[in-house]
Design a protein around this nucleic acid. Structure first.
Lengths: 246, 246
DNA sequence: CGCGACTTTGAAGTAAATCAATGGGCGTGG
DNA sequence: CCACGCCCATTGATTTACTTCAAAGTCGCG
């Protein structure tokens, strides 16, 4: 598993610092902490394996965990990129089903590991914990639906544009800048595209002046213009230099 | 909305009959029933519209509700086919977010409509209800992940084979027969395929002797053989009559 | 029996995958 | 401080599986 354990004494303090636990009742938190540890995961370390039972709840403290499924052609389909303050494994633990995905560290990470038995026991005792967990799982479900919507778009340009617009800080923000949350090949895999196609689409949108790409940083000047792309049937380059967008 | 209300007196009895409510505590059930009604929906009647707030929880009593997203080219991507005993809308209600999908009756249906306010209030009171709802949402989430896995397969043959194998009654059943849960075009849309492609793949698998199709009824003699297809990179007809499938 | 909805089949077009090779950035070590 | 090597990203040429468009064929049902 490639895990390095970290000072156990810090656990309750760290837990309280995490927004994840902010709203958790104090006594539940104490009991959960008793069955918890913080581990360091080197990049590419495995957190969970597909079709194997999951025995813990994982809360990301720092770094990034990649949830994915392997496809033929040694490709991956990324289901989620789990960042600090986010968790993974609730649904599996609740249903006591085998894990339907692989999970590995996308970069060096610290993860709080909460014992699954303890978690499930507390879930039956503490209605606030149950309620919060319900919200978390519901949110994950909604994100999954949203991803399904993006991935079922036939046009790669629409897929990418829709994805980029998810980083809009407020619904009405016209311009904003952000960093892609992972390697471009992982983001591509999240969109159900190859890295080559993703790269080409990014280049295309840049050439159109709809976005500015420099490495992992992306700037969007006019979100509404990018939004328009989203509703179009098709808009790829037509062989000649500059396509007829708008 | 095209709704016909049904005898309100039957509501508590109907609720108790539904497996959905079997495990719900009696007093919660009483209060939920107070804010509930049973409606009849003609085929194609709208249940929920994308981007609009949802104000009720829907439990299907009979018939079939289709959850979907519209795509360009007046196509649909079906997210779920909700049958008797299943529900829809929990996640939206819990998060108080706009509905991320359309929902319409796929056939004439009876649906129990539980007031969202009442449902949310009971959720905060009754830990058993919270726990059961958590299980329901977790199950929906897992199904969503499973669908994502199927849809991210590049080969249509693999997609269809994987889907058909979901109807296997037990993990080890060698042969079984079942009916597709909806029109072929809707099943196709669930797999992210056109109805034409779905029809062709079904025909292909039939010609290979892997399945027998007659209308909506499908028989699988040797599930393990079909399972093999699932792991292959590609196996479509190569121009000539019969492809070289093991 | 005849209509409408759904499905099947055929032929052609196209967007994205694939294969292959180059280019850039960064950390390590000389 | 530069040079090497590794990983990641880009770019180009080709292939192909799926879509699309079009039309005929089933099926169920009034």
């Amino acid at each position: 598993m490639n895990r390095l354990h970290v000072a156990p004494a810090q656990i309750p303090q760290t837990m309280r610092r995490l927004s994840f636990f902010q709203v958790w009742p104090e006594d539940s938190l104490e009991r959960l902490a008793a069955g918890a540890k913080i581990v360091h995961l080197a990049k590419s370390a495995t957190v969970a394996r597909k079709n194997e039972p999951l025995e813990s709840l994982y809360v990301v403290v720092s770094g990034l965990i990649r949830m994915f499924i392997s496809l033929p052609n040694n490709m991956e389909r990324v289901l989620a990129l789990v960042g600090p303050g986010e968790s993974l494994g609730e649904a599996c633990l609740i249903l006591e089903e085998a894990c339907p995905y692989h999970a590995v560290a996308g970069k060096d990470s610290h993860v709080l590991v909460v014992d699954g038995m303890v978690f499930r026991r507390e879930l039956g005792r503490d209605i606030t914990l149950a309620r919060r967990t319900l919200e978390r799982v519901a949110r994950r479900y909604m994100e999954c639906l949203r991803d399904a919507e993006i991935c079922s778009q036939r046009s790669s340009v629409v897929r990418v544009a829709s994805y980029l617009l998810l980083f809009r800080p407020e619904p009405e923000a016209a311009s904003f800048t952000f960093h892609l949350p992972a390697r471009k090949q992982d983001v591509a895999a999240k969109l159900g595209l190859t890295q080559e196609t993703f790269s080409r689409v990014l280049g295309f949108l840049d050439k159109q002046g709809l976005i500015q790409v420099s490495g992992a940083q992306i700037r969007i000047e006019d979100a509404s213009r990018l939004q328009q792309v989203t509703t179009m049937k098709d808009c790829r380059e037509t062989g000649n230099g500059d396509a007829n967008l708008i």
